[in-house]
């Protein structure tokens, strides 16, 4: 309960901070709308030449774009900025102040920085998903939608754990800001179903950078194409990732000596 309260407090502070810069909202809105329009236009171009893409219909790909924006937005609202701040904290020694607080350090560093205007992506993504679901019609049953929600949460947990592990590496390799760019680059490939890619890249997008679990797998669940085994695997994997990344974070923390002290 106390942890939840802390998360809420961090997020509220972030929102208050962002409200000082309201013009940023309109800039973000403009950029997000353009980004979404681009993604949908690219799908339109592809489907002007074909009726299906590797077994995916147009509406399924629209749903994929929605999830791409939703998950990307969630990552960019709190996870990525907080991880960037964590790495900066390790480099500058400001992490000391966080560690001395009488609360769970992982929760504190994970919600430290909020880029609230990126919520625009979350909202736009959700709208696109709803539109796609309406167009898919009766193919999306209640059980599919429930499983979709479950897999989406599992996918987010996997992505969060992955980014936490990347950021924790900063305890050993201090100058590492660019490592998060690797994730952003690989994430771009998630705009399309990972099944399209050649085996080596598909493997990389599943195992090395787990983009597949956050985007392709949830949409497959939504359209009822996912086998129950994959669903169970995803959830189990999420738990393994969460436990593993927490262990790694604690292990890394023991190597932290403080840069300023």
């Amino acid at each position: 309960m106390r942890s939840l309260g802390l998360v809420w407090l961090s997020l509220r502070l972030g929102v208050l901070n962002a409200l000082q810069y309201r013009v940023d909202f309109f800039i973000q809105l403009f950029q997000s709308v353009i980004g979404l329009g681009t993604a949908l236009a690219a799908i339109a171009v592809v489907f002007s030449q074909t009726d299906e893409l590797g077994g995916w219909t147009r509406d399924e790909l629209v749903a994929l774009v929605g999830v791409f924006f939703l998950v990307g937005g969630l990552v960019n609202v709190v996870i990525r900025p907080s991880m960037e701040r964590l790495m900066e904290g390790v480099r500058l020694g400001t992490l000391d102040f966080t560690l001395t607080k009488p609360a769970d350090a992982q929760i504190l560093v994970s919600t430290r920085q909020v880029d609230v205007w990126r919520l625009v992506d979350v909202v736009l993504g959700s709208v696109v998903i709803v539109i796609a679901i309406t167009r898919l019609g009766e193919r999306v049953g209640v059980e599919h939608a429930t499983a979709f929600g479950l897999v989406l949460i599992a996918g987010m947990a996997i992505i969060y754990s992955f980014l936490l592990v990347l950021a924790t590496l900063a305890f050993w390799l201090v100058r590492l800001e660019n490592i998060l760019v690797i994730f952003a680059t690989m994430y771009e490939a998630g705009r399309w179903p990972v099944g399209l890619y050649p085996p080596w890249l598909r493997l990389a997008l599943t195992v090395v950078v787990p983009v597949a679990f956050a985007i392709t797998v949830p949409v497959e669940t939504l359209v009822g194409r996912l086998e129950p085994a994959t669903l169970v695997t995803t959830v189990v994997l999420a738990v393994v990732f969460l436990v593993g990344s927490r262990w790694f974070w604690k292990f890394g923390l023991r190597h932290y000596t403080g840069a300023s002290a």
């Binding site: 680059t185 690989m186 771009e188 490939a189 705009r191 399309w192 399209l196 890619y197 050649p198 890249l201």
Partner: peptide, 8 residues
């Protein structure tokens, strides 16, 4: 990655 996406 970039060229591979649309190529694929």
């Amino acid at each position: 990655i970039q060229p591979i996406v649309y190529l694929v």
